[in-house]
Simulated assay, not measured.
Amino acid sequence: MSHTAHIRSHRKPRRSASTTVAMRAGVAGGVLSTLAVAGASGSASAAEPVTQTLELPTLTAEMAAQVAQSADATQQAAANYELQAERDAAAAKAAKEAKADLKEAKAKAAAKKKAAEEARKEAAARAARDAERTTLTATSDTGSSDTGSSSASTGTSTATGSAAAIVSFVKAQVGAAYVSGATGPSAYDCSGLVQAAYKQVGVSLPRVSQDQSVAGTQVSLDSLQPGDILYWGGAGSAYHVGVYVGDGMFVGAQNSSTGVVEKPLSYDPPSGAVRVL
């Protein structure tokens, strides 16, 4: 035996190149996780193992259930919000469509009402024109027979005498004011002046331009005679009237700026004319 065999070696025990890592983890019953690291030497007299314990948070079954329940509640709330948004959008669309339908129905009803009112007015105007024509015919016949007897002594025809009176009247109104709806004696509108002029010779004319433009016999602008009624616009839909006074002149209540004026036909060429006398 060697003389050194009984002497304990003074060298530190060599650590093995291999290291063992063991982990015990418990997640149920509140057991703590333990991590143990041990080093072992290859010699018979191994060094004492070194153990270190770390505490890690433990996820219990109850906490996991609560997390899952919270996730389900959040998902359900999101689904409810989405459903409510879809319902609100559908309600808004339905309200908008109902509003549009109501507006269209009101417009159609108003159009029908307007058409019915216009038809009623047209029928009334037509009846009034027929009545006025009847009155004018009767008046003209009476005037012709009354003045015909005097024409033999005066040598003046009835038409000339009545026309002269009308011309004289409208010329006397030149300078008077224009007022819409006025029929004299100090102010006139266009049809009010014509009506007042014919009233001087006993002829009752309709009040408005549209009716006056069809109150007599239509005549050509090339064959006008003093006293003829001139109109602007269509026959039956005229917007202005005046009186032809001869020599290419007419008198009319033009507007609020000019009042009653005497002007040549070229100043404002008329659309047509009617002869009542």
Rank of each mutant, 00 (worst) to 15 (best):
E55K: 15
E55T: 15
E55P: 08
L56D: 02
P57S: 10
P57C: 02
L59Y: 03
T60S: 15
T60Q: 09
A61H: 08
E62L: 10
E62G: 08
M63G: 02
M63Y: 05
A65S: 13
Q66F: 07
V67D: 06
V67L: 13
V67G: 04
A68V: 10
A68C: 03
Q69F: 02
S70C: 04
S70G: 10
A71T: 07
D72R: 12
A73C: 01
A73S: 09
T74P: 02
T74R: 13
A77K: 06
A78C: 09
A79C: 01
A79W: 05
A79H: 08
E82Q: 14
E82P: 01
L83F: 02
L83V: 06
Q84P: 00
Q84I: 09
A85E: 09
E86A: 07
D88C: 01
A89N: 02
A89S: 10
A90T: 04
A90W: 01
A92H: 05
A92K: 08
K93E: 11
A94M: 01
A94W: 00
A95T: 14
A95V: 13
K96R: 05
E97F: 04
A100P: 02
D101P: 00
D101K: 06
D101G: 01
L102T: 04
L102V: 01
K103N: 03
E104G: 00
E104C: 00
E104P: 00
A105N: 05
K106T: 03
A107C: 00
A107S: 00
K108Y: 02
A109I: 02
A111Y: 07
A111K: 13
A111V: 10
A111N: 09
K112W: 02
K113Q: 12
A116T: 11
E117I: 02
E118R: 10
R120L: 07
R120Y: 07
K121M: 12
E122T: 14
E122C: 05
E122A: 15
A124V: 13
A124F: 10
A125S: 14
A125R: 15
A125E: 15
A125K: 15
A125N: 15
A125Y: 15
R126T: 15
A128C: 00
A128E: 12
A131Y: 11
E132W: 04
R133L: 15
T134E: 07
T134Q: 06
T135C: 08
L136D: 03
T137I: 09
A138L: 14
T139V: 11
T139H: 07
D141T: 14
D141I: 14
G143K: 14
G143T: 12
G143Y: 05
S144T: 14
S145I: 09
D146V: 14
T147P: 00
T147R: 09
S149I: 13
S149Y: 12
